[in-house]
Design a protein around this nucleic acid. Structure first.
Length: 292
DNA sequence: CACCATGTTCCTTG
DNA sequence: CCAAGGAACATGGT
């Protein structure tokens, strides 16, 4: 359930639930998700610690904890990979098959499950410092963004995914932002005009902010049962309200008519990921003058 | 069996 | 040193 908006919604949901709670016991069922932190380091650091804050950076969750007798806060970094979920569950509830880390609080427990184990829950904070500015903050300027793009020959869609120029844009919203800005995903990053850079900066902020707003209106039911975790609405889950259909305008719409011009949406593969776009609204070359 | 999947990192090559 | 491309990671759904 990745991408920035889903993480933002999750962080807002979890913050009041975890803050103030103390970790009584730490169970690691899949050591890989802690890497490069070892199981021993992880358990030693977290046992007895109390959650004092939770924020988001790009697609990362940043937990802040305090330990008795220690001044400095402890930072715990989470990432959901492709299939991760984090939630509080009753202590007696059965653990899911792919529970990776379980933190015992007093009457409940914090569960991090991830069927593919691509996510992380670690003390290593290096990924945070490598990431570009927050797309919704004032740090994300057209000037900085444009300067970064100028140095890259990569296709703009691929460049957006590497997180270095702006943090938190994933595969779905990269296609969505490019569609709204009418920029072809194959266009080399350095070839964007300054008008296109400004437009893309604006549409990135727009699609992310809209998705957060939309996600905030959906009730979250995590934990056991209800196979539809409230956070999977960003995928192609069934039972979605109608406004959902309007949210994603190109992603996963291969062969369907473009909502702007009715041309069939195309799917291509870039850097081993699907990209969806409208060949008419997002032209690669110069826009030809209409020939009669 | 085939192909697809919301992500990141590491390795190789130029 | 840097940019770019591809494999790897691991599991489940269609």
């Amino acid at each position: 359930m990745p991408e920035l908006p889903e993480v933002e919604v999750l962080v807002r949901h979890l913050r009041p639930l975890v803050c103030g709670r103390t970790i009584r016991a730490v169970a690691v069922r899949r050591a890989r998700v802690l890497a490069p932190t070892s199981v021993g380091q992880f358990q030693h650091a977290l046992r007895g610690a109390r959650f004092t804050g939770l924020s988001r950076r790009g697609k990362y969750l940043v937990f802040e904890l305090r330990r008795p007798g220690r001044r400095a806060p402890l930072i715990l970094v989470g990432h959901l990979g492709m299939t991760g979920r984090m939630y509080l569950a009753p202590r007696r509830a059965p653990l899911p098959k792919h529970a990776a880390v379980v933190l015992d609080l007093s009457r409940e427990r914090f569960v991090y499950e991830d069927s593919r184990y691509f996510g992380r829950l670690t003390l290593d904070t290096r990924a945070l410092s490598r990431m570009g500015p927050e797309p919704l903050s004032d740090d994300f300027t057209a000037a900085t963004f444009g300067a970064g793009l100028t140095r890259s020959r990569q296709a703009i869609k691929v460049k957006l995914l590497d997180q270095s120029l702006v943090g938190g844009v994933g595969n779905i919203y990269a296609s969505e932002a490019l569609f709204r800005a009418c920029i072809a995903p194959q266009l080399a990053a350095r070839k964007l005009s300054s008008a296109q850079v400004k437009a893309l900066r604006r549409t990135i902020r727009e699609v992310l902010a809209e998705a957060i707003r939309f996600g905030s209106t959906i009730p979250l039911h995590h934990g056991d049962k209800c196979g539809s975790d409230g956070l999977f609405y960003f995928g192609r889950a069934a039972g979605m309200a109608d406004d959902y259909a309007e949210r994603l305008r190109v992603y996963d719409r291969k062969g369907l008519p473009c909502l702007r011009c009715r041309t069939a949406i195309r799917r291509i593969v870039q850097a081993a990921r699907s990209t969806f776009y409208c060949p008419v609204c997002q032209p690669r070359g110069k826009i030809k003058p209409k020939a009669g």
